[in-house]
Each structure stands twice: as structure tokens, then as C-alpha cells.
Amino acid sequence: MKTISNAEFGGERPLFESHDLRLENVIIHAGESAIKECSNIEAINCKFEGNYPFWHVHGFIIDRCFFDIGGRSALWYSDHLKMTNTRIDAPKMFREMHDIEINNVEITDADEVFWRCNRLNIKNLKLHGGTYPFMFCNDIYIDGLESDSKYIFQYVKNLELHNAKITTKDALWETENVTIYDSELNGEYLGWHSRNLRLINCKISGTQPLCYAENLILENCIMADDCDLAFEYSSVNATIKSPIHSVKNPRTGSITADSYGKIILDKNIKSPADCKLKLWDERTCFSD
């Protein structure tokens, strides 16, 4: 493997079609497509200032690097990436990629990051700002996530998420086969139109959560005081270790909670309209 150390590049495609190359303490200045159509690349302690540096790259390592604001859309149409201990200040990262490993990465402008990516293995990721991270991604494992980005995890399939703190709006819409463990989910309209969403030991806050969901499961979860009008038109089986502020027209299944502030079962409820609302002492609740 060839090594380039303590160098600077700029302009158009300075390292185009490089293979078996290690970059150490290299700066990529303003320009486009610095490392395009490449394979077996290692970038260690490097700084990326120009647009689109890693496009159509197959097999690469990025460690202790920094992507400046100008390095937007840096990682597209590539595969088999391992990224560690890196900070990204640019938006629109990770697009149309597969086989990605990430450990200890922070993205300070998470606008449209991780779109149409498959097979992601992520540990300790921080996302700040932006909209729609992880849109249309499949086969994701994450342990350790902090995010305040809006509309996270929409149209995602096959996600396993552990130890997350998510503050957002409209998260987990139109998802399929998602399981979340030991996490805090703060935001409005959580999990609408989801299929096979399972929340285990989670704390949930925000208005109108978990509506229009199919085969929704909650195990030993807590719902904050602002979780009102929950479960509308959902098929749900839930064990809630707290009061529920209000429940509206769940379609079918069973919900067990400490107490219910308000139960709304009106003429608009959808069939089979047989969801059982229970207390932990096995009494069944119902509206007037």
C-alpha cells in the first residue's frame, strides 16, 4: 500500500482512480471529487474541505478525520466503509451506500444524512440539526445514539436500536420491523403508520404518539404527561409502567397501565374496536 503523508491537494479529482492508498495528515482543499472511483483507501488524521471527496469508493477506512462545511455530500455511492472517531460539519452525507461501520462519530449538520443505505452497524453516533436522517435505510443496528434532528427514521426497515436519546418530530413513520431498547423518545406524532414496531423499556413523550400503527408492541414502557390521544386506530399490545394521559380509539389488542386520564372511544373507532384497556390490578377500564 502506498502512503502519502503531510500533503495538501485541491482542485478537480487530484487522486482519481487511486487504489491501495493510505493518506496520513492530508488536507483536501476546495475542489471536487478528490478521491473518486477508488478502492482500498485509508484516511488517517485528514481534513476534507472540498465537495464530494469519496464517491464510488469500494473498501475504505476513515479514522480521526474532519469534514469541514465545504465537504458536503462527501460519501455517496460507496461501500464497505469503516469510520471511527470522526467529526462531520457538512450535510448530506452517506447516500446510496452499503456495508457501513461507524464508531464514535459526530455529525453537526445532519441534514439528509444516511439516505438509501443498507447494512449499517453503528456505535456511539451523535446527530445535530437537519431533517430526515436514515430515510429509506434497511438493516440497521445502532447502540448509542443522540439526535435532535427532525423526522428521523422514516421509511426504515429492519432497525434494532439500543440506548438512544432522540428529540424529534414525526419519527419512525412508515417503518417496518423496528425494535428499540432502553431509549428515550421525545417528540410529536411518534411511529405513525408503522408496522411491527416494538418498544422495550422506553420512555415516550410528545402528543399523539403511536397512531395508525399495525402490530405495535410496548413492553415495560413509560409515557410522559404530554402523551395525549395515544394509539388512535392502532393494533397494539402494551404494558405501560405509568399513567397514560389519554387514549383515543385504539382499534384492537390490549393496553395495561397504572391509570388513564381520559379514554375516548367514540363513533369514529375502527373495527374490530375490541382493544382491552386494563389496570395492573387486572380491572378493565372503559369510557362512559
Rank of each mutant, 00 (worst) to 15 (best):
N6V: 01
E8M: 06
E12L: 04
R13Y: 07
H19F: 05
H19R: 08
N25S: 08
H29M: 09
A30R: 06
A30D: 15
G31Y: 06
E37R: 04
C38E: 11
S39G: 13
N40E: 15
A43C: 15
A43S: 13
I44A: 08
C46S: 13
K47T: 15
N51A: 15
F54H: 07
W55Q: 12
I61H: 13
I61P: 01
D63W: 08
D68W: 15
A74Q: 01
L75W: 05
L75R: 00
Y77G: 02
M93E: 08
H98D: 14
E106G: 05
A110Q: 09
A110K: 02
N118Y: 12
N121M: 13
K123C: 14
G129W: 14
F134L: 06
C137D: 14
N138G: 03
G144W: 13
G144D: 11
S147C: 13
S149A: 11
Y151H: 13
L159Y: 09
H162V: 01
N163V: 03
I166A: 01
K169V: 04
E174K: 02
T175P: 01
E176R: 07
V178D: 12
I180D: 04
Y181N: 08
S183F: 05
N186P: 00
G187S: 05
G187N: 05
E188F: 07
L199E: 07
C202M: 04
K203N: 05
S205C: 03
G206F: 06
Q208P: 00
P209C: 04
L210Y: 04
E214D: 10
N215G: 04
E219Y: 10
N220G: 08
N220K: 10
C221K: 02
I222H: 07
A230D: 12
E232W: 07
Y233P: 00
K241E: 10
K241P: 00
K241G: 02
K248L: 14
N249D: 14
P250S: 11
R251V: 05
T256P: 01
S259R: 15
I264P: 01
K267D: 15
K267E: 15
I269N: 04
L277F: 09
T284M: 09
D288R: 02
